[in-house]
């Protein structure tokens, strides 16, 4: 049903980063921060399409591939969860820190192919970060898309990221519904409690003319995909984005392959139909 666009181009050495600057750091949750990045001249480092990736490097410490969660006229946003050596160090830096950035890498969400369709965005935890780039794109081009549903879940209310978007900005958009759930509530939580896949089933979305964009922890993707299937969604109506250990970002270094496809170059965005043809090794 949807065709995923694949393109890549590069003029300068794709493996050498450009020096950029972190201009702003926002705490999203106790372990997720959003880093706003500009070039040293104060411009946007590059113009990614929704779903694309950037290789973010704390020079001398390490490089990591992250999805670009938002972009503006002159900046890129990366929402990064503290999980390993690089991200631990990243969470310690202060605004003004100069970092290395290369990209954009990978393919993009099928923004064109989805035009005229209803959109169902499903995110879990930090999995909302890549999906958010598409959500923002859809709102910027609101008339191109039908009804928009956003389902988002995290472990606890404190772990919900992009709270402004979830509770203020997005619900205010026309013909849009935002459904939030947490695995475990607290005394101040009045919303839904439960896992995302079950919540999706509860909400019982209609598969008619709808495209699903799904990202979260592997186990959530697996069970959401089953739930969606039960509800009548076909494999090619469900788009997801994968992660793998990456080093080069340009399909050379070898490690992020799933079968003969490289997640950094041919992915990270795949439809469930495409994934069904690939070995289940991710």
């Amino acid at each position: 049903m949807v065709e995923i666009e694949r393109e890549c181009s590069c003029e300068k050495n794709p493996l050498v980063p450009q020096v950029c600057q972190i201009v702003e750091i926002t705490d999203e949750t106790p372990d997720i921060k959003t880093f706003k990045v500009k070039t040293m001249e104060g411009t946007k480092p590059f113009a990614p399409k929704p779903g694309q990736l950037g290789m973010f490097s704390l020079i001398g410490i390490g490089e990591g591939m992250f999805s670009i969660t938002a972009q503006g006229e002159d900046y890129l946003d990366f929402a990064i969860k503290k999980i390993g050596m690089l991200t631990d160090a990243l969470h310690e830096v202060k605004p003004g820190k100069q970092i290395g950035l290369r990209g954009p890498y990978g393919n993009t969400f099928p923004t064109e192919g989805c035009k005229g369709k209803n959109m169902l965005f499903i995110g879990g935890g930090i999995g909302l970060a890549p999906v958010r780039s598409f959500i923002r794109y859809a709102f910027e081009n609101r008339k191109d898309y039908g009804k928009i549903d956003i389902v988002y879940g995290s472990r606890t209310p404190a772990d919900l990221c992009f709270k402004d978007d979830l509770f203020k900005n997005w619900p205010a958009m026309p013909d849009t519904e935002v459904h939030v759930t947490v695995d475990k509530g607290d005394e101040n939580w009045n919303g839904h409690v439960g896992f995302v896949p079950a919540f999706v089933e509860e909400l019982n979305f209609s598969p008619a003319d709808t495209i699903v964009v799904l990202c979260g922890p592997p186990i959530m993707i697996k069970y959401c995909a089953q739930s969606l299937k039960k509800m009548g969604f076909a494999d090619d109506q469900v788009v997801t984005t994968l992660e793998m250990r990456m080093k080069c970002g340009i399909g050379k270094c070898g490690r992020c392959n799933i079968g003969s496809k490289y997640v950094c170059l041919d992915g990270p965005v795949f439809t469930m139909a495409e994934l069904a043809d690939l070995p289940a090794e991710y």
């Binding site: 050498v16 450009q18 020079i59 003004g96 100069q98």
Partner: peptide, 15 residues
Amino acid sequence: MYKYKVSAETAEVKE
């Protein structure tokens, strides 16, 4: 691949 210099804030890269 490239040499670099970093300080608390700055970074420099030379291919």
